[in-house]
Amino acid sequence: MIHVENLWKRFGRFEALRGMSFEVPEGSAFAMIGANGAGKTTTIKVLMNILEPSRGSATLLGVDSRRIAVRELAQIGYVSENQDMPARLTVEEYTAYLRRFYPTWDRELETSIARQLRLPRDRKIGNLSHGMRLKMALLCALPYRPKVLILDEPFSGLDPLVRDEFMEGLLGQAGEMTILISSHELGEIDGVATHIAFVDEGKVLFQESMGDLTRRFREVHVTLDGEASRPSQTPKEWMAMQMTGNVLTFVDTQFDERALGERIRSRMRDVRDIDSQPMALRSIFTTLARAARDGSAQEKAGAQ
């Protein structure tokens, strides 16, 4: 549905995207997670043909992003935290304006979403709060039942109540839609995303289905008989290793319940107890982000 291959985007001397690649399966809710400035919004704008890539390719609905035109846009919903809509039109006037451009626009659905989102239809867009504007953008993105819905930082600056209303509005209409959602807040996509990609410095560190991700990440606590020390050889899948007294803690990124005990015991003596806990998405992200940062720091140090 969405395919991004070695995408580069340069703004003057700054490279916002540096070989971004990922694939969004049809029907999935794909979350792009990354810190501010990681390249999420740039990727989305390239996909929407708002920006032209410097190198690489991006396809959406099977069409090269440079050729995204009226036919494709009629099947894509787009919601962004910084979307400039005509401030002097009312909510009703703008939705009425947009209706004509979408052959599949469903007025009943529009009414139902507007009611669900509790949008004041006679208020001018310029007089809407930030949250209201995001809901307005959602209202303008759903009634034509798009095949793809792209949400760029949709929860940014929303209070929990509005966020919930937004999510209810979104999930209520999601259906078969393919959703691409970008966020720097993991908590926001928890329970929504089926797939996830971690983006850092213009490239994807990895992408995976949520199921696989939560299945293979575990926080492991190894209790030893004596003082804990760092094993001489640790597999690269073990990250964020810490020693506290006789307890060694690390994150296993390739968790296998049956093999874990053997792998630990082959590297450490006097193992008294092994305990593995599923990790929250936030913890996984933090671990990977730190590892990426340390890795790039090491790369730089190595280069020097």
Binding site: K45, I50, A69, L73, I76, Q83, D84, F101, A137
Partner: peptide
Amino acid sequence: HLEAIPGTRQDWLTRPIP
């Protein structure tokens, strides 16, 4: 400028307006 061309935030750019 109602449908400004330069810029990346305009809503109309994401709409199927010929």
